[in-house]
Design a protein around this nucleic acid. Structure first.
Lengths: 221, 221
DNA sequence: AACCGCTTGTGAACGCAGGAACAAAGTCGC
DNA sequence: GCGACTTTGTTCCTGCGTTCACAAGCGGTT
C-alpha cells in the first residue's frame, strides 16, 4: 500500500502545468523565491487555490518566506513526469498539424514527436521541423520501434475515427484529438478532446450575454 | 424584468456548441428527429446530462418521439448567437495563426475573420484564405470599421500582453489567447485561455498515473 | 532570548456539475 | 376509444472543486 499518489485532481494537474511554466520563466530570470500570491497572480488563479494545489505534493514551501523557485519547479516536473521525455506521434499534417509539429513549447515540456504521418501522398516526404512526413503504412512500425504512448490527431473530422482505431491497435495509450468529433475508443485508452471553435463560441456567448444584460433589451421570440 | 435568460452555465454552453455541430451533421444527412440517447452518444456525453442542458432552453422536444433536428438546431443556434455572423480579428500569423485563419469550421459556426495582423514585415501582404495579412498599424482602423468584438491572439508569448493591450484599446470585448501566458485585461474584457501543451501534459500525467497503478511499483523518492 | 510580521498549510462552508431515478406526456397499436 | 410503450423534463442526491478564514511556523529584529 504505497499510497504516495493521493490521486491529484485533474483540474489541479492542469494548473500544475501552468505553474511549472511560470516557475521555469522565473528561474530563468534569476528569481530564487516566490510567494503564493505572486505566483498565483502570474498564473491567473486564486492564491488560496494555488496553495491547495501545491499541498497535494506535500509541504514544499517555507512559512514566512515562500517557495524556492528551483525546488518547486523540479518537484512539479517530477510529479508531472516531465523529466522523462515522452514519445508522441502526430497524424494529419495540415495547417494545424504543422503548427503543432513546429511548436517549440512541446520539446521543453518533455514531449518529442517521433513520427509525423499523413495520408496524402503529396505531403509524404516533406520535412517539418527537421523530420520527414511518413505514410500511414509506417505507423505501426514507428509506434512499436519508439514505444510511443501518445497520439495526436489533427486530421479532418471525417477520418478521425479510423485514425483513432489505427492508433489504438498500434499500441498508443493516450490520444489528444483536435478533430471536431467525439471519438470512440477502448476503455484502456484515454481520449482528450480539444475543439477550437467551441472555445470561440463560448467566448461569443459570454460576450453576447453581457451586452444583453447591459442594454437590458427585450429581444425574445 | 425579462428574465428569459436564466444564466446558462458555462459548461452547458460548451456542450451546446457540440450538440449544434452534431445536429448540423444530422440535418445534412436528412434526419428529421433524434432521441436524447442517440444525440448524447454522438456528442460523447450522458443522456441525462444532455436533457438537462437542453432544459435550459425550455421545452423543445416531444415526449415519446424525441427532438426535431432542424428545430433544435435553430434554437441552439439562436441561443448561442450563431445566426448573426461575428467579426473577429486574428493577430499573429505564424503556423498556428495560419491554421486558424484557414480553418473552415469557423465560418460555418458564425465567425468570420475580418482582419489578419502580424508584426513581421515579411508576412504582411501574404494572402491567407483569400485575405491579406495587414500590419499592426491598421488594427484600430479595421476594428472600428468592422465593429469586430472578438480578438484571437496566436503570437509568441513575449508579445501577447502588448497585443492584448492594443486589442482592448481598439475596442475588442472578448479575447481568445493561444499564447502560453496569463493575460491581464480590464474587467469588461473577457479573456479565455487555450494552452495546447497543458492538454498534452494532463494526458501524459493520466497515462503515467494509470500505468503506475497497474504495475503498482513503488517508485518514490 | 523574546517578540512581531509575514506566509504557508489546512479545515470548513459554499456553490456547482454530474448521474440516477421517477413522474408527466405524447404516440402508436388494437 | 383505450391501453401500453417510449421518451422527455424534472427532482434528488452525491461528489468535486473553489473560496474564505484561521491556526501554525519561520525569519528577522531588538
Amino acid at each position: 500500500m504505497t499510497q504516495s499518489r493521493p490521486r491529484i485532481p485533474e483540474a489541479t494537474v492542469a494548473r500544475l502545468a501552468v505553474y511549472l511554466r511560470v516557475l521555469t520563466g522565473l528561474a530563468g530570470g534569476g528569481r530564487s523565491t516566490v510567494s503564493s500570491g505572486e505566483l498565483a497572480s502570474a498564473a491567473g488563479v486564486n492564491p488560496a487555490g494555488l496553495r491547495k494545489d501545491l499541498s497535494h505534493l506535500g509541504p514544499c514551501g517555507v512559512r514566512g518566506v515562500g517557495y524556492d523557485v528551483a525546488t518547486l519547479r523540479d518537484r512539479i516536473a517530477r510529479v508531472l513526469g516531465v523529466e522523462q521525455s515522452r514519445a508522441c506521434v502526430l497524424v494529419g499534417i495540415g495547417n494545424l498539424g504543422t503548427a503543432l509539429a513546429d511548436y517549440a513549447g512541446f520539446g521543453s515540456r518533455g514531449f518529442r514527436f517521433v513520427g509525423l504521418f499523413d495520408a496524402a501522398p503529396a505531403r509524404v516526404g516533406q520535412r517539418i521541423g527537421g523530420q520527414p512526413v511518413r505514410p500511414m503504412a509506417e505507423l505501426d512500425e514507428v509506434v512499436a520501434a519508439t514505444a510511443a504512448t501518445i497520439g495526436v490527431i489533427a486530421t479532418p473530422a471525417e477520418v478521425a475515427q479510423p485514425v483513432c482505431d489505427r492508433l489504438t491497435t498500434a499500441g498508443v495509450r493516450s490520444i489528444l484529438n483536435f478533430a471536431p468529433v467525439a471519438l470512440a475508443a477502448p476503455p484502456e485508452v484515454d481520449v482528450r478532446q480539444v475543439d477550437l471553435s467551441v472555445e470561440l463560441q463560448v467566448l461569443a456567448f459570454l460576450g453576447q450575454q453581457r451586452s444583453d444584460a447591459a442594454g437590458s433589451l427585450e429581444v425574445l421570440a
